[in-house]
Amino acid sequence: MKILVPVKRVVDHNVKIRVKTDGSGVDLANAKMSMNPFDEIAVEQAVRMKEAGEATEVVVVSVGPAQAQEVLRTALAMGADRAILILADGRVEPLSVAKILQRVAQAEGAGMVILGKQAIDDDCNQTGQMLAALLGWSQATFASKIEMEGAHALVTREIDGGLQQIRVTLPAVVTADLRLNEPRYASLPNIMKAKKKPLVQQTPEDLGLPIAPRLTVLRVEEPVARASGIKVGSVAELLDKLKTEAAVI
């Protein structure tokens, strides 16, 4: 079984982003960029499944600018076999990404697609579900455990009240939640080896797909800041404030 792992290049999770003063977006100039943390978990999962003999090949794919090669090389250093970059500058919405991934998954004959449940930049949480819909495959979102059972996979999902186990028929799309695994750090020899692994580039036009956005971003605003609070000196003072000033207890 071949596993396809889509990965997204996003602003690093430690970067505190700033909204541009003209409201046109967020200022990412010179910001450190990394692989979306949930996609890192997806790569780790696919590599572990290959190591366990459950997968034969791990192919990583990214839709993004030329610099997205860096996150693909990171995935190759973690153990993926080869990479595909679909070159697209600017904002590409999850629906367009899902359409591109649909073509790639079909062309590759993937038996499973594993990807992060959401990207930490647009926080959409859509791509995996949309891809499953377009492919007509089953989906298992927010996975914290994947167990292979022949033509099926038993997936444990994180839901609001706890966990849920479902059995999906393969091929399937699985989206990774935080506790699926802890991604490895790539070793230096593996980083060197990754430079020689195949990475091909294509464009959405090669796949015959338009990627014009459906949503118009009118502006991007600063969130409303909370008024600064006070420090109190004792528990008695705190409880008094909560009772009389805030009236919440």
Binding site: D122, D123, R214, L215, E221, P223
Partner: peptide, 15 residues
């Protein structure tokens, strides 16, 4: 909200 709520996006749908 986008970027963990550090920015708010105002979007208009054309669908």
């Amino acid at each position: 909200p986008i970027y963990a709520g550090n920015a708010i996006e105002v979007v208009q749908s054309t669908d």
